[in-house]
Amino acid sequence: MRQTIVRNVAGLPTFGYGAHSGPWWGAMGFMALEGMGFAIAIGAYLYLYAVNPNWPIGAAPPDLWPGTAETIIYLLSIIPNEMTNRVAHRQDLAKVRVGLIAMSVIGVGLLVLRGFEFAHLNTRWDNSAYGSIVWLVLGLHTTHLATDVGDTIVLTVLMFTRHAKPRRFSDVTDNVFYWNFVVLAWLPLYVLLDWVPRL
């Protein structure tokens, strides 16, 4: 078939941020399906809550301090996260490095705190359906947290190597974006795990 060139796109940039970037949409897709996973887990929790006359079953509600502390740190972490986002858009490598290190430290700290939270759930996964669903919900979120922290650390290391090229700044903004999802997903879970058993 004969080709007629009607347009030249040579002037377009070779990477973009946000909705102009492929990986951003990929992250959106995965967040959508993972968000659905959280919704289903919450639904399962509420189903078990509805069919059982006693809740929590054979256990005290979880201790409040680990979850509450996490919630506060999650909310505060949005500030350095958004600052990292801004400097990544400006392609300021030195500040991006600082931001990523800060986010890695916060992530590791939250993982440690998460360990305490499991220890203070006051129930085991095999005690009752209540224990099972609590461990599942918390485990599901911990998987996301751990994955994102791992991703952040790898990206941090990457930005200290010769691979710290401009297109990596787009990856940094995607990582920022995903962290916001991890935070956002946590908030309803905090209410569900720590406050619903106290109703």
């Binding site: 004969r2 007629t4 060139i5 009607v6 347009r7 796109v9 040579a10």
Partner: peptide, 11 residues
């Protein structure tokens, strides 16, 4: 148009 295809160039 089955004979000619409009295209972009510059990749």
């Amino acid at each position: 148009d089955s004979a000619s295809l409009p295209v972009v160039a510059g990749l």
